[in-house]
């Protein structure tokens, strides 16, 4: 996804992305990214969490303005203690 972000930014549009892997982002170097600590498949939090989803978007907009150096990955921990039970539930394998 970083490759697409780089193409859009190179076309003259300011971009920001969610990173789900610090290691990938450190290699691909998207212009601006936020690493929220969410697991794979959950860039904008969890199902039904409309307020939290919107807050993640507000944070992205905040960091769009705040990041002033190309290739910055803002590392935030937006997770809560019960988040992972959502995907660690055995029903994921049904």
């Amino acid at each position: 996804m970083g490759l697409i972000q780089r193409a859009v930014e190179a076309a003259g549009i300011a971009t920001i992305s969610i990173s789900l892997s610090r290691e990938i982002s450190q290699k691909v170097l998207p212009p601006r990214a936020v690493y929220p600590g969410f697991p794979l498949g959950h860039p904008i939090a969890f199902p039904g969490e409309t307020f939290r989803q919107k807050q993640v978007l507000r944070l992205l907009l905040k960091y769009l303005k705040k990041i002033d150096s190309p290739g910055t990955i803002a590392e935030l921990d937006l997770t809560e203690s019960d988040d992972h039970s959502v995907i660690r539930d055995i029903s994921a394998f049904n």
Binding site: M1, I4, Q5, V8, I13, A14, T15, I16, S17, I18, S19, L20, P30, L40, G41, P43, I44, L57, L60, L61, L64
Partner: peptide, 10 residues
Amino acid sequence: KVNIVILTPA
């Protein structure tokens, strides 16, 4: 004439 693009992986 888009000014902001938000990208989401999965």
